[in-house]
């Protein structure tokens, strides 16, 4: 099987400081990978490099495009990268406000990606928006409300609907459950797990919440100070941590 995403020796520096360095991994179709680590360990830098928001200083990020197989997204032209960004990729921000247009109705938010890939039939766009709002448990009568009128959990679900409407193959998530209370988190995770399994999505999830990766991720990558210190199957890493930092991370979780 060919990988969907192939990362090789990726490095990003902020001047003399390391953002992340020496990152290599393969992600296969249908696989969900978690990236955990403390604040400032380079998780978000890595995710932004992968998603094309930041330009890495060296290394390659190869994505299996539908038409020409593996292509390096770092050297790809910007129009091509943006095209990927609104078709095959999705990016779920930690704060829904960063990923949504707050002054556009929920339906418009979901429809934007469709219109960006030349959907020009209002009725069809509307129908798909209703369908997707239903899938993320937002009732149909809220379709013309703006996200400002939504609760935090609803905004996050709307952001997910908006991202998944074009049927992406790879989803980047940056702390998707951050800032939500635990019961809302649980429902969101449940929803995400369902969507990922149903659509056969591949996903890369950055989080510092070990419960999130335990539920969602097949594989885990632990980062510290810009380096990957441990990788492996999620259960293996969490139940039998080898690296000192991973041991600290696992033992730091409060047991209720």
């Amino acid at each position: 099987m060919t990988p969907l995403l192939q990362v090789e020796n990726l490095a990003k520096y902020y001047g003399a400081r390391i953002g992340c360095t020496d990152v290599s991994f393969d992600l296969y179709p249908g696989e969900v990978m978690g990236i955990v680590g403390e604040s400032g360990s380079g998780k978000s830098t890595l995710l932004n490099c992968l998603a094309g928001h930041l330009k890495p200083d060296h290394g390659a990020v190869r994505f299996a495009t539908r038409s020409d197989g593996l292509r390096d997204t770092v050297t790809m032209s910007e129009p091509e990268r943006r095209m990927l960004g609104r078709t095959d990729w999705a990016f779920v921000h930690q704060h829904a406000r960063d990923g949504l247009r707050m002054n556009v109705s929920a339906g418009g938010n979901v429809g934007e990606r469709l219109m960006a890939v030349n959907a020009r039939h209002y009725g069809d766009i509307r129908e798909q928006a209703i369908d997707w709002l239903g899938r993320v448990e937002i009732t149909q009568d809220r379709i013309d409300d703006r996200p400002t009128a939504f609760s935090g959990g609803m905004q996050q679900r709307l952001q997910i609907a908006r991202n998944l409407v074009t049927g992406p193959r790879l989803v980047f998530m940056d702390e998707p459950t951050g800032g939500l209370d635990v019961s809302v988190q649980a429902r969101l995770l449940d929803l995400l797990r369902g969507l990922v399994r149903d659509m056969g999505l591949s996903a890369i999830i950055v989080t510092h919440d070990l419960a999130v990766v335990r539920l969602l991720a097949d594989r885990l990558m632990v980062m510290k100070d810009g380096h990957v210190v441990e990788t492996g199957l999620t259960d293996q890493v969490l139940d039998d941590p080898q690296h000192g930092y991973t041991q600290l991370l696992v033992s730091s979780v409060l047991q209720v």
Binding site: V104, S105, G111, E112, A116
Partner: peptide, 18 residues
């Protein structure tokens, strides 16, 4: 520059929905 004009239709969509 990139002919990224999906947003323009979002405005028209909003018009029709409202």
């Amino acid at each position: 520059a990139l002919e990224d004009y999906g947003l323009m239709h979002v405005k028209l969509y909003e018009d029709i929905s409202q």
